[in-house]
Write a protein that binds this DNA or RNA. Structure first.
Length: 467
RNA sequence: GGCCCCAUCGUCUAGUGGUCUAGGACAUCAGAUUCUCAUUCUGAGAACUUGGAUUCGAAUUCCAAUGGGGUCACCA
Protein backbone atom coordinates (compact mmCIF):
# COMPACT_ATOMS: atom_id res chain seq x y z
CA UNK A 1 0.00 0.00 0.00
CA UNK A 2 1.27 3.42 -0.93
CA UNK A 3 1.79 5.69 2.06
CA UNK A 4 3.01 9.24 1.63
CA UNK A 5 3.45 12.04 4.11
CA UNK A 6 4.43 15.59 4.63
CA UNK A 7 6.36 16.50 7.73
CA UNK A 8 6.11 20.21 8.39
CA UNK A 9 7.60 22.04 11.34
CA UNK A 10 5.46 24.36 13.40
CA UNK A 11 7.89 27.22 13.02
CA UNK A 12 5.80 29.80 11.19
CA UNK A 13 3.46 30.14 8.28
CA UNK A 14 3.12 27.24 5.88
CA UNK A 15 5.24 27.97 2.81
CA UNK A 16 3.73 27.86 -0.65
CA UNK A 17 6.44 25.40 -1.68
CA UNK A 18 5.35 23.17 1.17
CA UNK A 19 1.84 23.27 -0.17
CA UNK A 20 3.06 22.08 -3.54
CA UNK A 21 4.97 19.23 -1.93
CA UNK A 22 1.83 18.37 -0.03
CA UNK A 23 -0.22 18.44 -3.22
CA UNK A 24 1.99 15.91 -4.97
CA UNK A 25 2.11 13.64 -1.93
CA UNK A 26 -1.61 13.88 -1.52
CA UNK A 27 -2.30 13.21 -5.19
CA UNK A 28 0.03 10.25 -5.32
CA UNK A 29 -1.63 8.63 -2.32
CA UNK A 30 -5.10 9.30 -3.72
CA UNK A 31 -4.23 7.97 -7.13
CA UNK A 32 -2.89 4.73 -5.71
CA UNK A 33 -5.60 4.24 -3.12
CA UNK A 34 -2.99 4.79 -0.46
CA UNK A 35 -2.83 6.88 2.65
CA UNK A 36 -1.62 10.42 3.10
CA UNK A 37 -0.17 11.30 6.47
CA UNK A 38 0.66 14.56 8.21
CA UNK A 39 3.36 14.39 10.81
CA UNK A 40 4.46 17.36 12.87
CA UNK A 41 8.21 17.63 13.27
CA UNK A 42 8.50 19.89 16.26
CA UNK A 43 11.91 18.88 17.51
CA UNK A 44 13.31 22.38 17.43
CA UNK A 45 11.95 24.01 20.53
CA UNK A 46 13.88 27.22 19.83
CA UNK A 47 11.96 27.95 16.67
CA UNK A 48 8.62 26.64 17.83
CA UNK A 49 5.82 29.07 17.10
CA UNK A 50 2.70 28.83 19.21
CA UNK A 51 -0.43 28.16 17.20
CA UNK A 52 1.30 27.53 13.92
CA UNK A 53 0.34 23.88 13.88
CA UNK A 54 -3.30 24.81 14.14
CA UNK A 55 -2.98 27.38 11.37
CA UNK A 56 -1.15 24.88 9.21
CA UNK A 57 -3.96 22.35 9.44
CA UNK A 58 -6.53 25.05 8.78
CA UNK A 59 -4.87 26.38 5.67
CA UNK A 60 -4.60 22.89 4.20
CA UNK A 61 -8.33 22.47 4.71
CA UNK A 62 -8.96 25.88 3.20
CA UNK A 63 -7.20 24.70 0.08
CA UNK A 64 -9.61 21.80 -0.06
CA UNK A 65 -7.15 19.05 0.79
CA UNK A 66 -7.36 16.42 3.48
CA UNK A 67 -5.34 13.73 5.21
CA UNK A 68 -5.94 10.24 6.47
CA UNK A 69 -3.75 10.26 9.54
CA UNK A 70 -2.41 13.18 11.49
CA UNK A 71 -1.94 14.90 14.82
CA UNK A 72 -5.57 16.00 15.07
CA UNK A 73 -7.29 12.82 13.92
CA UNK A 74 -4.76 10.25 15.05
CA UNK A 75 -4.40 6.93 13.28
CA UNK A 76 -2.89 3.53 13.50
CA UNK A 77 0.62 4.88 13.89
CA UNK A 78 -0.05 7.58 16.47
CA UNK A 79 1.22 9.81 17.86
CA UNK A 80 1.92 11.99 14.81
CA UNK A 81 3.79 14.68 16.68
CA UNK A 82 7.47 14.05 17.18
CA UNK A 83 7.73 15.68 20.59
CA UNK A 84 5.39 12.93 21.80
CA UNK A 85 7.68 10.20 20.48
CA UNK A 86 10.88 11.08 22.31
CA UNK A 87 11.15 7.71 24.05
CA UNK A 88 11.20 5.93 20.71
CA UNK A 89 14.06 8.01 19.33
CA UNK A 90 16.07 7.53 22.48
CA UNK A 91 15.62 3.77 22.40
CA UNK A 92 16.52 3.51 18.73
CA UNK A 93 19.55 5.75 19.10
CA UNK A 94 20.87 3.81 22.06
CA UNK A 95 20.47 0.63 20.11
CA UNK A 96 22.68 2.14 17.46
CA UNK A 97 25.29 3.02 20.07
CA UNK A 98 25.26 -0.55 21.38
CA UNK A 99 25.86 -1.83 17.87
CA UNK A 100 28.74 0.61 17.41
CA UNK A 101 26.92 2.49 14.65
CA UNK A 102 26.67 5.63 16.71
CA UNK A 103 28.54 7.10 19.64
CA UNK A 104 28.29 9.51 22.53
CA UNK A 105 29.96 12.84 22.00
CA UNK A 106 30.76 15.09 24.93
CA UNK A 107 32.31 17.95 23.03
CA UNK A 108 31.19 21.38 24.13
CA UNK A 109 29.83 23.99 21.78
CA UNK A 110 32.94 26.06 22.42
CA UNK A 111 35.25 23.25 21.40
CA UNK A 112 33.25 22.63 18.27
CA UNK A 113 33.46 26.27 17.35
CA UNK A 114 37.18 26.36 18.03
CA UNK A 115 37.76 23.34 15.81
CA UNK A 116 35.67 24.85 13.06
CA UNK A 117 37.56 28.12 13.26
CA UNK A 118 40.90 26.41 12.90
CA UNK A 119 39.70 24.33 9.99
CA UNK A 120 38.51 27.39 8.16
CA UNK A 121 41.82 29.15 8.78
CA UNK A 122 43.63 26.16 7.31
CA UNK A 123 41.15 26.18 4.43
CA UNK A 124 39.88 22.76 5.34
CA UNK A 125 36.26 21.70 5.13
CA UNK A 126 34.65 22.56 8.45
CA UNK A 127 33.37 19.42 10.08
CA UNK A 128 33.42 17.51 13.31
CA UNK A 129 36.92 16.17 13.99
CA UNK A 130 35.55 12.92 15.43
CA UNK A 131 37.19 13.66 18.74
CA UNK A 132 34.80 11.42 20.67
CA UNK A 133 34.44 8.72 18.06
CA UNK A 134 36.80 6.31 19.73
CA UNK A 135 36.21 6.89 23.40
CA UNK A 136 36.50 3.69 25.43
CA UNK A 137 33.39 2.31 27.09
CA UNK A 138 35.06 3.13 30.36
CA UNK A 139 35.50 6.79 29.43
CA UNK A 140 31.94 7.04 28.21
CA UNK A 141 30.57 5.44 31.36
CA UNK A 142 32.49 7.88 33.53
CA UNK A 143 31.29 10.97 31.69
CA UNK A 144 27.77 9.68 31.69
CA UNK A 145 27.78 9.09 35.43
CA UNK A 146 29.30 12.56 35.90
CA UNK A 147 26.29 13.93 34.02
CA UNK A 148 28.39 15.56 31.33
CA UNK A 149 26.14 16.90 28.60
CA UNK A 150 26.25 14.76 25.49
CA UNK A 151 24.88 14.22 22.02
CA UNK A 152 24.72 11.01 20.05
CA UNK A 153 26.44 11.04 16.69
CA UNK A 154 26.21 8.73 13.73
CA UNK A 155 29.38 6.77 13.11
CA UNK A 156 29.67 7.37 9.41
CA UNK A 157 31.60 4.49 7.85
CA UNK A 158 34.84 5.34 6.08
CA UNK A 159 35.60 4.80 2.40
CA UNK A 160 32.18 3.65 1.45
CA UNK A 161 30.10 4.48 -1.56
CA UNK A 162 26.59 5.34 -0.55
CA UNK A 163 24.10 4.67 -3.30
CA UNK A 164 20.44 5.35 -3.58
CA UNK A 165 17.97 5.92 -6.32
CA UNK A 166 16.01 9.08 -6.77
CA UNK A 167 12.93 8.19 -8.78
CA UNK A 168 13.29 11.12 -11.13
CA UNK A 169 17.05 11.61 -11.19
CA UNK A 170 18.29 8.06 -11.20
CA UNK A 171 21.11 6.66 -9.13
CA UNK A 172 23.05 9.00 -6.90
CA UNK A 173 26.41 8.02 -5.47
CA UNK A 174 28.12 9.79 -2.62
CA UNK A 175 31.49 9.12 -0.98
CA UNK A 176 30.96 8.51 2.73
CA UNK A 177 34.19 10.39 3.45
CA UNK A 178 32.47 13.63 2.51
CA UNK A 179 29.89 13.13 5.25
CA UNK A 180 30.02 14.53 8.74
CA UNK A 181 29.24 12.47 11.82
CA UNK A 182 25.72 13.76 12.01
CA UNK A 183 24.23 14.50 15.41
CA UNK A 184 21.29 12.19 16.00
CA UNK A 185 20.19 13.10 19.50
CA UNK A 186 20.71 16.65 20.69
CA UNK A 187 21.86 17.50 24.19
CA UNK A 188 18.30 18.41 25.11
CA UNK A 189 17.26 14.84 24.38
CA UNK A 190 15.37 15.72 21.23
CA UNK A 191 16.25 13.99 17.98
CA UNK A 192 17.56 15.93 15.03
CA UNK A 193 15.50 15.99 11.88
CA UNK A 194 17.60 13.24 10.35
CA UNK A 195 16.99 10.75 13.10
CA UNK A 196 13.37 11.60 13.60
CA UNK A 197 12.43 11.49 9.98
CA UNK A 198 14.01 8.11 9.33
CA UNK A 199 12.62 6.41 12.40
CA UNK A 200 9.15 7.77 11.84
CA UNK A 201 9.13 6.98 8.15
CA UNK A 202 10.12 3.43 9.04
CA UNK A 203 7.59 3.09 11.84
CA UNK A 204 4.80 4.74 9.88
CA UNK A 205 5.61 2.55 6.91
CA UNK A 206 6.05 5.40 4.50
CA UNK A 207 6.65 3.96 1.05
CA UNK A 208 7.38 7.13 -0.92
CA UNK A 209 9.40 10.01 0.45
CA UNK A 210 8.53 12.99 -1.69
CA UNK A 211 10.20 16.12 -0.43
CA UNK A 212 11.98 19.22 -1.67
CA UNK A 213 15.31 19.06 -3.46
CA UNK A 214 17.02 20.87 -0.61
CA UNK A 215 16.97 17.53 1.21
CA UNK A 216 18.93 15.73 -1.44
CA UNK A 217 22.35 16.38 0.16
CA UNK A 218 21.25 14.86 3.46
CA UNK A 219 19.63 11.79 1.95
CA UNK A 220 22.89 9.78 2.08
CA UNK A 221 22.82 10.16 5.86
CA UNK A 222 19.28 8.88 5.88
CA UNK A 223 20.30 5.95 3.72
CA UNK A 224 23.00 5.11 6.27
CA UNK A 225 20.40 5.24 9.00
CA UNK A 226 18.00 2.94 7.18
CA UNK A 227 20.83 0.48 6.76
CA UNK A 228 21.92 0.81 10.36
CA UNK A 229 18.40 0.07 11.53
CA UNK A 230 18.12 -2.77 9.07
CA UNK A 231 15.21 -1.51 7.03
CA UNK A 232 14.75 -1.26 3.25
CA UNK A 233 14.81 2.13 1.60
CA UNK A 234 11.60 3.87 0.62
CA UNK A 235 11.31 5.38 -2.84
CA UNK A 236 12.96 8.78 -2.77
CA UNK A 237 11.56 11.54 -4.93
CA UNK A 238 13.16 14.93 -4.65
CA UNK A 239 10.97 17.70 -5.91
CA UNK A 240 12.51 20.78 -7.41
CA UNK A 241 12.75 23.87 -5.27
CA UNK A 242 10.67 26.90 -6.15
CA UNK A 243 12.79 29.81 -7.32
CA UNK A 244 12.19 33.54 -7.22
CA UNK A 245 10.47 35.05 -10.30
CA UNK A 246 13.83 36.04 -11.73
CA UNK A 247 15.11 32.51 -11.21
CA UNK A 248 17.68 33.68 -8.69
CA UNK A 249 17.62 31.78 -5.46
CA UNK A 250 14.97 29.92 -3.53
CA UNK A 251 11.69 31.73 -3.35
CA UNK A 252 11.89 34.43 -0.72
CA UNK A 253 9.72 37.11 0.80
CA UNK A 254 11.55 39.74 -1.19
CA UNK A 255 9.09 39.26 -4.03
CA UNK A 256 5.91 39.18 -2.00
CA UNK A 257 4.14 36.67 0.10
CA UNK A 258 5.42 33.12 0.21
CA UNK A 259 2.92 31.70 2.64
CA UNK A 260 0.06 29.51 1.55
CA UNK A 261 -2.27 31.68 3.58
CA UNK A 262 -0.94 34.87 2.01
CA UNK A 263 -2.10 33.94 -1.47
CA UNK A 264 -5.60 33.23 -0.21
CA UNK A 265 -5.62 36.59 1.51
CA UNK A 266 -4.66 38.24 -1.75
CA UNK A 267 -7.71 36.81 -3.42
CA UNK A 268 -6.39 33.81 -5.27
CA UNK A 269 -8.81 30.93 -5.42
CA UNK A 270 -7.67 27.66 -3.82
CA UNK A 271 -8.43 25.66 -6.95
CA UNK A 272 -6.50 28.10 -9.13
CA UNK A 273 -3.53 28.09 -6.77
CA UNK A 274 -3.43 24.33 -6.76
CA UNK A 275 -3.75 24.20 -10.52
CA UNK A 276 -0.87 26.63 -10.89
CA UNK A 277 1.23 24.77 -8.35
CA UNK A 278 0.74 21.38 -9.97
CA UNK A 279 2.17 22.73 -13.20
CA UNK A 280 5.25 24.17 -11.52
CA UNK A 281 7.55 21.22 -11.77
CA UNK A 282 5.18 18.71 -13.22
CA UNK A 283 3.65 18.40 -16.67
CA UNK A 284 1.26 16.01 -18.33
CA UNK A 285 2.24 14.63 -21.71
CA UNK A 286 -0.69 16.21 -23.50
CA UNK A 287 -0.12 19.89 -22.71
CA UNK A 288 -3.35 20.24 -20.75
CA UNK A 289 -3.29 23.32 -18.51
CA UNK A 290 -6.51 23.45 -16.57
CA UNK A 291 -6.99 20.64 -14.10
CA UNK A 292 -9.53 20.04 -11.41
CA UNK A 293 -8.20 18.23 -8.38
CA UNK A 294 -9.98 15.07 -9.47
CA UNK A 295 -8.50 15.25 -12.96
CA UNK A 296 -5.08 15.83 -11.49
CA UNK A 297 -5.31 12.76 -9.30
CA UNK A 298 -6.38 10.83 -12.36
CA UNK A 299 -3.36 11.74 -14.50
CA UNK A 300 -0.67 12.46 -11.92
CA UNK A 301 2.43 10.46 -12.66
CA UNK A 302 5.89 10.66 -11.12
CA UNK A 303 7.36 10.50 -14.60
CA UNK A 304 6.00 13.94 -15.32
CA UNK A 305 7.95 15.45 -12.45
CA UNK A 306 10.60 17.94 -13.46
CA UNK A 307 14.26 17.85 -12.49
CA UNK A 308 14.89 21.51 -13.13
CA UNK A 309 13.89 24.05 -10.51
CA UNK A 310 11.05 26.32 -11.60
CA UNK A 311 10.69 30.05 -11.14
CA UNK A 312 7.51 31.13 -9.45
CA UNK A 313 6.10 33.57 -11.98
CA UNK A 314 2.97 35.27 -10.72
CA UNK A 315 1.96 36.44 -14.19
CA UNK A 316 0.72 33.02 -15.13
CA UNK A 317 -0.84 32.56 -11.74
CA UNK A 318 -2.88 35.71 -12.34
CA UNK A 319 -4.08 34.33 -15.64
CA UNK A 320 -4.89 30.98 -14.09
CA UNK A 321 -6.87 32.66 -11.33
CA UNK A 322 -8.77 34.79 -13.82
CA UNK A 323 -9.77 31.65 -15.67
CA UNK A 324 -11.26 30.23 -12.48
CA UNK A 325 -12.98 33.50 -11.62
CA UNK A 326 -14.66 33.66 -15.02
CA UNK A 327 -15.99 30.17 -14.52
CA UNK A 328 -17.66 30.99 -11.19
CA UNK A 329 -21.38 31.46 -10.97
CA UNK A 330 -22.54 34.92 -9.88
CA UNK A 331 -23.49 33.51 -6.50
CA UNK A 332 -20.10 31.86 -6.00
CA UNK A 333 -18.43 35.08 -7.03
CA UNK A 334 -20.43 37.14 -4.55
CA UNK A 335 -19.67 34.74 -1.74
CA UNK A 336 -15.94 35.20 -2.17
CA UNK A 337 -16.09 38.85 -3.09
CA UNK A 338 -17.84 39.89 0.09
CA UNK A 339 -14.75 38.98 2.07
CA UNK A 340 -12.70 41.45 0.08
CA UNK A 341 -15.00 44.44 -0.16
CA UNK A 342 -13.95 47.07 2.32
CA UNK A 343 -17.45 48.43 2.89
CA UNK A 344 -20.71 46.93 4.01
CA UNK A 345 -22.50 45.69 0.95
CA UNK A 346 -25.38 43.38 0.33
CA UNK A 347 -24.90 39.96 -1.11
CA UNK A 348 -27.55 40.87 -3.61
CA UNK A 349 -25.57 43.78 -5.03
CA UNK A 350 -22.52 41.58 -5.43
CA UNK A 351 -24.51 38.98 -7.31
CA UNK A 352 -25.74 41.72 -9.64
CA UNK A 353 -22.33 43.15 -10.40
CA UNK A 354 -20.63 39.77 -10.64
CA UNK A 355 -21.15 39.44 -14.40
CA UNK A 356 -19.61 42.87 -14.90
CA UNK A 357 -16.53 42.04 -12.87
CA UNK A 358 -15.71 38.43 -13.58
CA UNK A 359 -13.71 39.06 -16.70
CA UNK A 360 -12.10 42.16 -15.25
CA UNK A 361 -10.26 41.01 -12.17
CA UNK A 362 -7.37 38.61 -11.81
CA UNK A 363 -7.71 38.31 -8.07
CA UNK A 364 -10.25 39.42 -5.52
CA UNK A 365 -8.07 42.00 -3.87
CA UNK A 366 -8.65 44.09 -7.01
CA UNK A 367 -12.37 44.33 -6.43
CA UNK A 368 -12.41 47.64 -4.55
CA UNK A 369 -10.39 49.31 -7.24
CA UNK A 370 -12.60 48.16 -10.09
CA UNK A 371 -15.99 48.25 -8.38
CA UNK A 372 -15.63 50.78 -5.58
CA UNK A 373 -18.08 53.16 -7.22
CA UNK A 374 -20.85 50.64 -6.68
CA UNK A 375 -20.25 50.73 -2.95
CA UNK A 376 -19.82 54.43 -2.31
CA UNK A 377 -19.98 57.75 -4.15
CA UNK A 378 -16.67 58.42 -5.89
CA UNK A 379 -14.73 61.65 -6.07
CA UNK A 380 -14.88 63.03 -9.56
CA UNK A 381 -11.87 64.80 -10.98
CA UNK A 382 -13.18 67.29 -13.54
CA UNK A 383 -10.02 67.19 -15.56
CA UNK A 384 -11.03 63.71 -16.70
CA UNK A 385 -13.95 65.14 -18.64
CA UNK A 386 -13.92 65.97 -22.30
CA UNK A 387 -14.67 69.54 -23.40
CA UNK A 388 -18.33 70.57 -23.16
CA UNK A 389 -19.14 67.60 -21.00
CA UNK A 390 -22.03 69.50 -19.47
CA UNK A 391 -23.97 69.14 -22.67
CA UNK A 392 -23.48 65.37 -22.67
CA UNK A 393 -24.46 65.05 -19.07
CA UNK A 394 -27.50 67.27 -19.33
CA UNK A 395 -28.90 65.08 -22.08
CA UNK A 396 -28.06 61.89 -20.25
CA UNK A 397 -29.67 63.22 -17.12
CA UNK A 398 -32.84 63.99 -18.96
CA UNK A 399 -33.07 60.53 -20.50
CA UNK A 400 -32.27 58.72 -17.30
CA UNK A 401 -34.65 60.78 -15.21
CA UNK A 402 -37.49 60.03 -17.61
CA UNK A 403 -36.63 56.40 -18.22
CA UNK A 404 -39.63 54.34 -17.27
CA UNK A 405 -38.72 50.77 -18.03
CA UNK A 406 -35.55 50.48 -16.01
CA UNK A 407 -33.69 47.92 -18.06
CA UNK A 408 -30.50 47.80 -20.05
CA UNK A 409 -32.00 47.49 -23.49
CA UNK A 410 -34.24 50.45 -22.99
CA UNK A 411 -31.45 52.58 -21.62
CA UNK A 412 -29.17 51.64 -24.50
CA UNK A 413 -31.64 52.60 -27.20
CA UNK A 414 -32.78 55.84 -25.61
CA UNK A 415 -29.24 57.01 -25.04
CA UNK A 416 -28.04 56.00 -28.50
CA UNK A 417 -30.99 57.76 -30.10
CA UNK A 418 -29.98 60.99 -28.43
CA UNK A 419 -26.34 60.55 -29.33
CA UNK A 420 -27.28 60.26 -32.98
CA UNK A 421 -29.78 63.04 -32.77
CA UNK A 422 -27.20 65.43 -31.38
CA UNK A 423 -24.36 64.16 -33.50
CA UNK A 424 -22.26 63.39 -30.47
CA UNK A 425 -19.20 61.24 -30.74
CA UNK A 426 -20.40 58.02 -29.13
CA UNK A 427 -17.16 57.42 -27.30
CA UNK A 428 -16.99 60.93 -25.90
CA UNK A 429 -20.55 60.89 -24.72
CA UNK A 430 -20.23 57.67 -22.82
CA UNK A 431 -16.85 58.61 -21.46
CA UNK A 432 -18.28 61.71 -19.84
CA UNK A 433 -21.15 59.72 -18.45
CA UNK A 434 -18.73 57.12 -17.16
CA UNK A 435 -16.54 59.66 -15.41
CA UNK A 436 -19.55 61.37 -13.82
CA UNK A 437 -20.85 58.11 -12.39
CA UNK A 438 -17.63 56.34 -11.48
CA UNK A 439 -14.90 58.98 -11.30
CA UNK A 440 -12.77 56.78 -13.52
CA UNK A 441 -11.93 56.24 -17.16
CA UNK A 442 -11.64 52.47 -16.97
CA UNK A 443 -14.73 50.77 -15.66
CA UNK A 444 -17.22 48.04 -16.39
CA UNK A 445 -19.70 48.94 -19.18
CA UNK A 446 -21.36 52.12 -18.04
CA UNK A 447 -24.95 51.41 -19.01
CA UNK A 448 -24.87 48.06 -17.29
CA UNK A 449 -23.45 49.75 -14.25
CA UNK A 450 -26.17 52.40 -14.26
CA UNK A 451 -28.87 49.76 -14.35
CA UNK A 452 -27.40 48.08 -11.28
CA UNK A 453 -26.79 51.37 -9.49
CA UNK A 454 -30.42 52.44 -9.90
CA UNK A 455 -32.06 55.65 -11.04
CA UNK A 456 -31.84 57.50 -7.78
CA UNK A 457 -28.12 57.22 -7.30
CA UNK A 458 -27.34 57.75 -10.96
CA UNK A 459 -29.35 60.93 -11.15
CA UNK A 460 -27.83 62.25 -7.96
CA UNK A 461 -24.32 61.66 -9.23
CA UNK A 462 -24.91 63.42 -12.52
CA UNK A 463 -26.58 66.33 -10.77
CA UNK A 464 -23.70 66.64 -8.40
CA UNK A 465 -21.30 67.09 -11.29
CA UNK A 466 -23.53 69.60 -12.99
CA UNK A 467 -23.95 71.47 -9.70
C1' G B 1 35.45 26.52 -1.68
C1' G B 2 34.00 20.77 -1.03
C1' C B 3 29.92 17.71 -2.26
C1' C B 4 25.21 16.97 -4.87
C1' C B 5 21.58 18.27 -8.60
C1' C B 6 20.39 20.70 -13.10
C1' A B 7 20.65 23.17 -18.36
C1' U B 8 14.65 23.86 -24.87
C1' C B 9 11.38 30.75 -26.33
C1' G B 10 11.42 36.26 -20.99
C1' U B 11 8.48 32.34 -17.76
C1' C B 12 6.07 27.24 -17.15
C1' U B 13 6.88 23.30 -20.41
C1' A B 14 6.17 19.16 -24.85
C1' G B 15 10.06 16.49 -26.92
C1' U B 16 13.18 9.85 -24.88
C1' G B 17 18.10 9.24 -32.58
C1' G B 18 15.22 10.60 -38.23
C1' U B 19 7.97 12.85 -38.53
C1' C B 20 11.98 19.34 -35.27
C1' U B 21 12.17 24.55 -41.08
C1' A B 22 11.41 22.31 -32.33
C1' G B 23 4.89 22.07 -30.43
C1' G B 24 1.61 24.29 -26.40
C1' A B 25 0.47 27.89 -22.43
C1' C B 26 1.48 32.65 -19.93
C1' A B 27 3.66 37.24 -21.09
C1' U B 28 4.91 40.71 -25.26
C1' C B 29 3.65 43.08 -30.02
C1' A B 30 0.10 43.90 -34.20
C1' G B 31 -4.93 43.52 -35.96
C1' A B 32 -10.50 42.49 -35.49
C1' U B 33 -14.93 43.14 -32.27
C1' U B 34 -16.28 47.15 -28.69
C1' C B 35 -18.99 53.50 -25.42
C1' U B 36 -13.67 52.93 -21.87
C1' C B 37 -11.31 48.79 -19.67
C1' A B 38 -11.57 43.71 -19.90
C1' U B 39 -13.32 39.32 -22.36
C1' U B 40 -13.29 36.87 -27.15
C1' C B 41 -11.03 36.01 -32.02
C1' U B 42 -6.80 36.30 -35.70
C1' G B 43 -1.73 36.87 -36.54
C1' A B 44 3.61 37.88 -35.37
C1' G B 45 8.29 37.82 -32.98
C1' A B 46 10.70 34.65 -29.42
C1' A B 47 14.55 28.83 -27.44
C1' C B 48 17.62 23.51 -28.04
C1' U B 49 24.51 27.25 -23.25
C1' U B 50 29.35 26.14 -25.65
C1' G B 51 33.07 22.62 -27.39
C1' G B 52 34.29 17.80 -28.42
C1' A B 53 32.84 12.43 -29.17
C1' U B 54 29.38 8.34 -30.88
C1' U B 55 26.20 7.80 -35.32
C1' C B 56 24.45 7.67 -42.08
C1' G B 57 21.74 11.08 -38.81
C1' A B 58 21.51 14.28 -32.19
C1' A B 59 17.45 19.02 -28.72
C1' U B 60 17.40 13.73 -27.72
C1' U B 61 23.53 9.26 -26.04
C1' C B 62 28.69 10.14 -23.79
C1' C B 63 32.67 13.56 -22.02
C1' A B 64 34.35 18.39 -20.80
C1' A B 65 33.82 23.51 -20.08
C1' U B 66 30.56 27.27 -18.75
C1' G B 67 26.33 28.76 -16.24
C1' G B 68 22.36 28.16 -12.57
C1' G B 69 20.42 25.93 -8.12
C1' G B 70 20.91 23.26 -3.55
C1' U B 71 23.72 21.90 0.66
C1' C B 72 27.73 21.87 4.05
C1' A B 73 24.34 23.30 12.41
C1' C B 74 23.06 20.14 18.84
C1' C B 75 17.34 24.18 12.08
C1' A B 76 14.13 21.68 9.73
Amino acid sequence: MVRTRIAPSPTGEFHIGGLRTLLYNWAYARKNDGKFVIRIEDTDRQRYVEGSEQRLLEVIKDYGLNWDEGPDIGGEYAPYTQSERLAIYKEWAEKLVKEDKAYYCFCTKQRLEEVRKQQIEKKLQPRYDRHCRNLTTQEVAEKLSDNVAFVIRLKVPENEEIRFKDEIRGEIVVDSNTLDDQVLIKSDGFPTYHLGVVIDDILMEITHVMRAEEWLPSTPKHVLLYKAFGYPLPAFIHLTDLLNPDGKGKMSKRYGSVSARGFLDEGYLPAAMLNFLMLLGWAPSNNQEIFSLAEFVEVFDIKGLQVKAAAFDKTKLDWMNSQYIMKMTDEEFAKVAIKFVSQDVSDDLLVQIAPLLKSRINKFSEINEIAGFFFSEPNVDESLFIENYQKHLAIALEIITDLENWNLENLNTKLMDKVKENNFKTGDFFMDLRVAITGKKFTPPINDSIIVLGKEKTVARIKRVLK
